[in-house]
Design a protein around this nucleic acid. Structure first.
Length: 262
DNA sequence: TTAGATGTTATTAA
DNA sequence: TTTAATAACATCTA
């Protein structure tokens, strides 16, 4: 699930649930989600502290405390939920943060593909974010266009490459390409000036509404609303959608709206 | 039973 | 050097 809009939603959840409130207790129910940090050190570092600032870069969420920084990545199935300490724990609640008097923030994740890190200082934060390209929501048009034109790979692969641009995942990339009317296997470096401009504009539009929705919404008027139906037609022109695997990811596009010009 | 699922990363190959 | 494909990670569902 988690792409940039989802993680932005988790950022808001963290903020409204726990920002400024003392973390009274850290309960690690499955240490399998901890990276480079032990249960003991996580508890000692965070209990008694409070998250002062919640930041997001691409699909990473950072909780600053004034001391160490808690860094979270959600993989494919992670999420953050805010509840009450008395709520029954669900099977995939891996870490519980009891905050203030009556709230509990939970890192819930079925597959445990990513998890939690604890960065000691700014250099540690930088180390973990090293290799991440500019955030897709914050990148300037010129930087976006420059990054694309220097790449020879397929535009779909380039858009989802976190070292080029941080935040876009498989669904968003397909959605943005469909809106910009670009075939996913077009070479990024071969796009025209106009193609790149359209791509940037549609990326911003798509991100804006997805962030508002808190996810990449499976709306009927979006491509995303049809990707699970193998006989689906394009919501714009009615053509039967094509699907194929690009870089071992399922890819959906409309053959009429997104002609293959390569 | 097997394939595939919105994440990243290491490895291997071209 | 760059790119692409594949497996691996852990777990569930169709």
């Amino acid at each position: 699930m988690p792409e940039l809009p989802d993680v932005e939603g988790f950022r808001k959840t963290f903020e409204s649930c726990a920002k400024g409130r003392t973390i009274r207790r850290v309960d690690v129910r499955d240490a399998g989600v901890l990276h480079e940090v032990s249960t003991r050190r996580l508890r000692e570092a965070l209990e008694g502290r409070r998250a002062t600032k919640l930041e997001r870069h691409g699909k990473w969420l950072l909780a600053r405390t004034g001391g160490p920084t808690l860094m979270l990545h959600f993989g494919m199935t992670g999420q953050l939920v805010c509840g009450h300490p008395d709520d029954a724990a669900e099977a995939h609640d891996r870490v519980l943060f009891t905050v203030g008097d009556d709230r509990q923030l939970r890192y819930r994740d079925q597959r445990k593909l990513q998890g939690l890190w604890l960065a000691d200082g700014d250099s540690d934060v930088s180390r973990l974010l090293d290799g991440q390209g500019p955030d897709a929501m914050a990148v300037a048009r010129r930087d976006f266009e420059a990054a694309l034109s220097s790449r020879r790979g397929k535009v779909k692969s380039v858009l989802t490459d976190q070292s080029v641009l941080a935040g876009l995942g498989n669904l968003l990339a397909d959605e943005i390409l469909w809106r910009a009317r670009l075939h996913p296997t077009r070479r990024a470096g071969d796009l025209t000036e106009d193609d790149r401009r359209r791509l940037y504009t549609q990326m911003r539009r798509t991100l804006r509404s997805a962030v508002t929705a808190g996810c990449v919404p499976p709306r009927d008027s979006w491509l995303t609303g049809h990707r699970d139906d193998s006989a689906a037609t394009c919501p714009r022109c009615g053509s039967t959608l094509h699907r194929f695997r690009i870089a071992s990811r399922s890819t959906v596009w409309c053959p009429r709206c997104q002609p293959d010009e390569s």
